[in-house]
Design a protein around this nucleic acid. Structure first.
Lengths: 109, 109
DNA sequence: TAACTACATTACGATACTGTTGTCGAGTGC
DNA sequence: GCACTCGACAACAGTATCGTAATGTAGTTA
């Protein structure tokens, strides 16, 4: 699995993508779009974040290709570009689980 | 796939783990440990990073459970705790590919 | 014991990022 | 035209992060 060698350039790009997900606010936004596309105002309402803040996070997610944009009249609809975000989160969560278990085991001994 | 609801606490933890990978230097370090465990000095030599810098990155990766530590005499050996890091990178890379392809398609049209 | 090596830790300057406020352009409806 | 809403953008303060230099701490060797 995976390449045997990654150039610094690719490494930087990958890191940049990880950084896009390294923010609870952005993960929350992505989670809100799980089922269907949403407008900025929708997301502001669901997340409790500020409008400018949500807009900026969406710009970043869009620049990194995590979400697609669709303008319709006054509204801008954002939707997940790819369900693989959740695959990533799943891996992270299972790692969290095993870490927690390992830690509990250490504490118990 | 995945839970239907993630609490803010879990979201913060997941984000924290993504952040650990959101740094080219740390990805480079992880890549160096791909095949076998390595000492700090080994990693300094292979990556070209400073000693204190490598040490700090390793502390972070260890705190997040990405690497294991083993002390032997004067040396500290670090090893990957989990191969799933590469699964994460693979997903990121394939997303990079499709993004690049999509961008090329847009430019071509 | 003294000198040396490997690694961790601290302190610090430079930079990047987050969230907010204020503002502006675009589209809608009266 | 006028008022309103949606969303993007710029500027700003506060905070976090990176890399480095200096120092500290074990463990090893002479």
């Amino acid at each position: 699995m995976a390449k045997t060698k990654l150039t610094p350039d690719v490494l930087a790009l990958v890191a940049q993508r990880f950084r896009a997900l390294a923010e609870p606010a952005r993960l929350q936004i992505l989670q809100c779009m799980r089922r269907h596309e949403m407008t900025v105002t929708d997301l502001v309402g669901e997340t409790g974040l500020g409008q400018a803040n949500v807009s900026k996070h969406l710009q970043l997610l869009h620049a990194q290709g995590f979400v697609n944009r669709r303008k319709d009249g006054l509204f801008t609809y954002y939707a997940l570009a790819d369900q693989s975000v959740f695959a990533l989160c799943d891996i992270m969560c299972s790692q969290l689980d095993s870490n927690a278990r390992a830690r509990r085991r250490v504490l118990a001994s």
